[in-house]
Nucleic acid binder design. Structure first.
Length: 428
RNA sequence: GGAGAGAUGGCUGAGUGGUCGAAAGCACCGGAUUCGAAAUCCGGCGUACGGGCAACCGUACCGGGGGUUCGAAUCCCCCUCUCUCCGCCA
């Protein structure tokens, strides 16, 4: 959500941001509406001031038994009533129009974000680790999992339909191990507080992170009106909604491992096989709440925390700086981390870390009191996956597969697997 | 599912028609006192919008919307949310 004052003072930057995202400029319309609002407000306030003054005089006149004066003043106030009532209606209407306009506009990309149309214009930031070499043709994760008899799409579809999976035995445990490992690293080494948040949220929470009103079709909704979270970003970021924090309490860092639910409307035909794109998946989310001047540093820190998980798992990856056309709605700047998948012979997204500036906090009314100076300011919010657990499982299977179909367990996960060193080859 | 209570400033909490943007306490800020600190005392301390170079002025805001009234935190209606008790359930 934009601040209309900021748009007034930075109309050019605002329109450039929209243009870079492939949208039409909107500053002229927004400012015109705001001009209208100010004009209405001026008239309304004059009328209200006169009414307030007259009402006081009426009180005085009545106290002095000056009935004539009181009657005259009352007539005047009666006239003002219509002006005030119309003014209030007009103001509400214009406010609503402005709100609707602004709520549908995406955040302004930072200056160092490459301008581009789609993922082909993303910039490579770094490549870390070497893709493993195989002396056989590496399989895709679903081939491996199904051969092990521990990954069952058929049964899942009987229960829930397409885009669901049943994991069993060592694979079910591997998913749990991955989530635990990630949480342990983030809580003990990266300063994040573990949270077990609600998975069903209200309109206002989803609006706060800007999943609503524009992206309702991507979400599942219960018949009572709750939204199933598509990411714990919603729950964790809204932890600070409608509050005023002290700057000395910042930054706040939250992490959670939760199921995520996505309708995947509009992605029909994409990644139809396997666990890459599911209606339900586990993800460890990181959310940081800080001040505007610390946002960029926090963004780098968060991205490093996500990358560190991959490094420890011995998985090769590359980090991309998303271009303007590929960035999320609320983001000012986003890094995607892509893990190497031998079975697909490709890098695939496994984490996305974004800094959102004040875009979400304005929607949530989340503010802080600066240690120096006065007033309150909006917080800066960041979110990132650290990591998508389901896709990490895929990466482990494909990168650690052996010729016989067995899977070596990465060292760091073994304590979480009861010491298990590998998932045995399928019986032949 | 049934019954009831409530929503006031950063927090707690008074306030049932004008003198209320709102008592008091806490928290916070400044000062006095002290070698320093605690305690104590004095003073300050809401948000948003509009106008003004500024000091400052105006308007709105006591959950949201509507109504009554010359005038509403206060009375009436609707909505939203929160809590309590009973029942049911993990």
């Amino acid at each position: 959500m934009f601040d209309i004052k900021w748009i007034r003072e930075n109309a050019e930057a605002f329109d450039r941001g929209l243009k870079n995202r492939g949208m039409d400029p909107a500053s002229a319309q927004a400012i015109a509406l705001d001009d209208e609002r100010r004009a209405i407000l001026g008239k309304l306030q004059d009328a209200q001031a006169r009414r307030n003054a007259a009402s006081k005089e009426i009180g005085k006149a009545k106290a002095q038994k000056d009935e004539d004066t009181a009657q005259a003043l009352m007539a005047e106030v009666a006239d003002l009533k219509g002006v005030i009532s119309t003014g209030e209606d007009d103001e509400r209407r214009v406010d609503q129009t402005i709100e609707t306009l602004l709520a549908a506009l995406p955040n302004t990309p930072l200056d160092d974000v490459p301008v581009g149309a789609d993922e082909n214009d993303n910039a490579l930031v770094r490549t870390v680790g070497e893709p493993p070499k195989f002396d056989f043709a590496p399989k895709e994760h679903f081939e491996l999992g199904e051969a092990l008899g521990l990954m069952d799409f058929e049964t899942a579809s009987k229960i829930s339909g397409a885009r669901f999976v049943v994991l069993k035995g060592a694979l079910a445990r591997l998913e749990r191990a991955l989530g635990q490992f990630m949480l342990d690293v983030h809580t003990t080494e990266n300063g994040y507080t573990e949270v077990n948040p609600p998975l069903l949220v209200r309109d206002q929470a989803a609006y706060g992170t800007a999943n609503l009103p524009k992206f309702a079709e991507d979400l599942f909704q219960t018949k009572e009106g709750f939204w199933l979270i598509p990411t714990a970003e919603i729950s964790l970021t809204n932890l600070v909604r409608e509050s005023i924090l002290d700057e000395s309490d910042l930054p706040k860092r939250f992490t959670a491992c939760t199921p995520c639910f996505r309708s995947e409307a509009g992605s029909a035909g994409r990644d139809v096989r396997g666990m890459i794109r599911q209606h339900q998946f586990a993800k460890v989310e990181m959310v940081s709440i800080t001040t505007a001047d610390k946002g960029i540093a926090e963004h780098e820190r968060m991205t490093a925390a996500a990358e560190d998980i991959l490094t420890r798992l011995g998985l090769a990856f590359r980090t991309m700086l998303l271009c303007t056309g590929d960035m999320g709605f609320a983001s000012q700047k986003t890094y995607d981390i892509e893990v190497w998948l031998p079975g697909q012979d490709a890098y695939r997204e496994i984490s996305s870390c974004s800094v959102c500036g004040e875009f979400q906090s304005r929607r949530m009314s989340a503010r802080y009191r600066p240690s120096e100076g006065k007033g309150v300011h909006h917080l800066t919010t960041l979110n990132g996956s650290g990591l998508a657990v389901g896709r990490t499982l895929i990466a482990v299977l494909e990168n650690y597969q052996q010729a016989d179909g067995s899977i070596v367990i990465p060292e760091v996960l073994r304590p979480y697997m009861g010491g298990l060193e590998q998932i045995e080859a399928p019986a032949t």
